[in-house]
Amino acid sequence: MKLSCLLASAFLFSINMLIAAPGKAQRLEEVDVTVNLKRQSLREGIRQIQQQSAFKFAYVASQLSPYDNITMPAERRSVLQTLNLLLENTELAWSLNGNTIVITEKRGTDPPLLSARVITVSGKVTDEKGNGLPNVTITIKNGGGGTITDVNGHFTVRVPDEKTIIVFSMIGYASVEIAAGSSTPLNIILKEENTFPQ
Rank of each mutant, 00 (worst) to 15 (best):
S41L: 00
S41W: 00
S41Y: 00
S41G: 03
S41A: 12
L42F: 04
L42Q: 01
L42P: 01
R43S: 11
R43F: 03
E44W: 00
E44T: 11
E44D: 09
G45F: 03
G45I: 07
G45M: 06
G45E: 02
I46D: 00
R47L: 08
R47K: 14
R47W: 02
R47F: 06
R47Q: 12
Q48A: 01
Q48V: 08
Q48R: 06
Q48F: 05
Q48P: 02
I49S: 01
I49T: 04
Q50Y: 11
Q50T: 12
Q50G: 08
Q50K: 14
Q50I: 05
Q50H: 13
Q51A: 14
Q51I: 12
Q51M: 11
Q51C: 06
Q52I: 08
Q52Y: 09
Q52L: 08
Q52V: 04
S53K: 09
S53H: 10
S53Q: 09
S53V: 04
A54L: 13
A54K: 14
F55Q: 07
F55E: 05
F55W: 09
F55I: 11
F55N: 08
K56G: 08
K56Q: 15
K56L: 12
K56C: 13
K56A: 13
F57W: 13
F57Y: 11
F57N: 09
F57G: 08
F57M: 11
A58C: 13
Y59Q: 11
Y59D: 05
Y59W: 13
Y59K: 08
V60C: 12
V60L: 15
A61W: 10
A61P: 01
S62P: 02
S62T: 13
S62E: 14
Q63G: 04
Q63E: 14
Q63A: 14
Q63L: 15
L64T: 11
L64Y: 11
L64Q: 10
L64A: 08
L64I: 10
S65F: 13
S65P: 01
S65R: 15
S65H: 12
S65K: 14
S65A: 15
P66H: 09
P66N: 06
P66R: 10
Y67G: 02
Y67L: 05
D68W: 00
N69S: 15
N69R: 14
I70W: 03
I70H: 04
I70E: 02
T71N: 08
T71A: 05
T71V: 02
T71F: 09
M72Q: 10
M72I: 09
M72E: 07
M72H: 03
P73E: 10
P73D: 07
P73L: 04
P73M: 03
P73R: 09
A74L: 08
E75T: 09
E75W: 01
E75C: 04
R76Q: 12
R76E: 07
R76I: 03
R76P: 00
R76W: 00
R77P: 02
R77T: 03
S78F: 05
S78P: 03
S78C: 03
S78Q: 05
S78I: 05
S78D: 02
